[in-house]
Write a protein that binds this DNA or RNA. Structure first.
Lengths: 214, 214
DNA sequence: TGCATTTTTGAAACCTGATTCAAATAGATG
DNA sequence: CATCTATTTGAATCAGGTTTCAAAAATGCA
């Protein structure tokens, strides 16, 4: 490779762009803002990523694959199926805390592009569907082992959890996430039969910091 | 009053604009689209409403006041507190069906303007807060009467219901509302102690059609 | 009918971002 | 050092959506 060397790191710039898109959404994130955060000028951005839309696709993919992997990792953890689901639910709180109550980019993307033929909207719906299946299977395992409280079907619960997660995106963005999310999580855990759910304070889980680099 | 008479009905045009904003969001709704739906040209719109932002404020206000009144009406209905809350929860399904699974404009507005200093964002947050209080009071009444199942606090439940409602906006917009919302409602009703919640099919409630005119 | 007043119309002006591109720059190579 | 290629820079351009406005039209009234 000859010629002037790139002076910025593509992944780092992408992570910076993700941060902006995540906070503001696609439309509201101006190129100026993005370039500022990425630390490069328009020319570099356009030659590297194509255009704003393509940049969003890349940023979304970074987010999506990491959320998916994180979920997969937690649900297939070392505990029983139900314990893993609970850990996953508790993870949401941590996730919001870690990321400044910006909510989930997937929910945000569905709101912005959900009904359109936009490829990112399609990707977002697919991701949710896949995660919902994963969750449902785990809940089915829990039920087969007799871990699940009576009165709920795995499919209904999986749908419900996904719905709750979407809701937290709106709550987070309304500014009351810090106040409200802990209680929401407690109620979810109670649904899973965690009797003392509204007494215990969920403990910190060690997790991968999955956005910054890689 | 002298001069050429207005040939369009302001409230009707506003309702049409609301429909477009509701379906597409503020940014994505182009003036062209709005004017087309309203059946007027830009001049009439600008002289009547001011500008696009002011039009959104008016449309949002129409939506907000009607949702608030509808909620108030249902929660203060003729049943017991808990029955009224259940009726309210069941009403969501109907609401989504009636309105083509567009979700709730308030959730959408919070996503789009929630964190900004935008006055509509502020109004949306306030509306949610007010409705949450109303709901919490009703749940408190239910608890005082011994209607509420053990294990949940009215405040937590109210927060949780609001969260669930927000979630349904995302689910609706992801295109799976028709499939998923009934189950979500059933799970909510089960949380309120409705034992047969996942067997019964919620019956149609007579309600005001609150958007079109008025 | 002619005048005053208000609304409608839609093309033009205007703005705000997104995108391009020619010139400048930084290394690699011989 | 001269040359080559790839990258950076940021001003200029472009695109699209919003807003204005002058002319035309509709009504009441004298």
């Amino acid at each position: 490779m000859v010629g002037r060397p790139k002076k910025f790191d593509e992944q780092q710039a992408l992570a910076a762009a993700l941060e902006v898109f995540w906070k503001r959404g696609y439309e509201a994130a101006s190129c100026e803002e993005l370039l500022e955060a990425m630390g490069i000028n328009s020319g570099s951005m356009y030659s590297t990523f194509g255009d704003k839309k393509a940049l969003y696709e890349r940023a979304f993919e970074l987010y999506a694959s990491n959320v998916f992997l994180r979920t997969q990792e937690i649900l297939n953890g070392s505990g029983t199926p139900l314990e893993n689901v609970r850990t996953w639910v508790r993870g949401w709180q941590e996730f919001q805390e870690e990321h400044d109550c910006k909510g989930c980019l997937v929910s945000h993307t569905i709101i912005e592009f959900g009904s359109s033929e936009n490829p990112v909207g399609h990707r977002a719906r697919k991701l949710i569907a896949d995660m919902q299946v994963m969750l449902q299977e785990k809940l089915q395992d829990a039920q087969d082992l007799g871990e699940l409280p009576e009165g709920h079907q795995p499919a209904d619960l999986a749908t419900f959890f996904v719905n709750t997660a979407h809701g937290m995106t709106v709550v987070a963005r309304s500014g009351t996430g810090e106040r409200d999310i802990p209680g929401i999580i407690r109620t979810m855990l109670a649904l899973l039969g965690e009797k003392s759910a509204n007494k215990i304070k969920p403990m910190k889980q060690p997790t991968i910091d999955f956005i910054s680099s890689n």
